[in-house]
């Protein structure tokens, strides 16, 4: 009887652990932050269904519309697999997305939470101040599929975002 009870307890423990593991994997610290423009709520709902934490912060003066909020700030720790899900969905909901930048690529040291976050809908003003370059969505999607590692993707974005030589604008 004691042996049976012990086996039963063991089974219960194993079952419990097996149930908890997926929950732990979902409780990862990574998240998606979405600027409140266009179909941001649809995107958030879509990502939540896929198991990701998605939040829409309150608007500030730099949150304008899909065209003006066309940058994606990528936290350096965000896994490649997550980017392979989040970025195509983000592009589907905002066809104007055209800047993709790994935060920290130019030496920035953001708060740790930023390293673990994808921000969809960064301001074009910030992208232009950083002199980022436009990356075609199809090219970005292709690279997401092609990159073997996160480092490879970061390297690609680093090269694509190298500032071009100054062009004097028309006065």
């Amino acid at each position: 009887m004691t042996a049976i009870s012990a086996r039963l307890c063991l089974i219960l423990i194993v079952v419990t652990v097996l149930n908890v593991i997926p929950a732990l994997s979902l409780a990862q610290p990574f998240a998606v932050e979405i600027a409140d423009v266009g179909k941001s709520r649809d995107l958030a709902a879509d990502l939540k269904i896929k198991g990701y934490v998605a939040v829409i912060p309150e608007k500030n003066m730099w949150v304008v519309d899909q065209q003006s909020n066309c940058a994606v700030w990528i936290g350096k720790n965000v896994p490649l697999e997550m980017l392979r899900v989040v970025l195509p969905e983000a592009m589907r909901f905002n066809p104007h997305l055209k800047f993709y930048y790994v935060v920290g690529d130019r030496g920035e040291k953001p708060p740790q939470s930023v390293d673990n976050m994808v921000h969809v809908g960064g301001s074009i003003e910030a992208a232009l101040v950083k002199k980022l370059n436009v990356i075609d969505q199809q090219e970005m999607l292709a690279e997401l599929g092609k990159a073997a590692t996160l480092e490879e993707l970061h390297g690609y974005l680093h090269e694509k975002n190298k500032p071009k030589p100054e062009q004097k604008p028309a006065s």
Partner: peptide, 28 residues
């Protein structure tokens, strides 16, 4: 009201010695 400026408040002091992250601009 908004949480960022609930009562049309104005800035009375600014310190550059402490930074806070602006997620939209991806900057401090």
């Amino acid at each position: 009201p908004t949480s960022t400026n609930p009562m049309e408040q104005t800035e009375t002091h600014r310190t550059w010695q402490t930074a806070e992250w602006n997620s939209t601009l991806g900057r401090y």
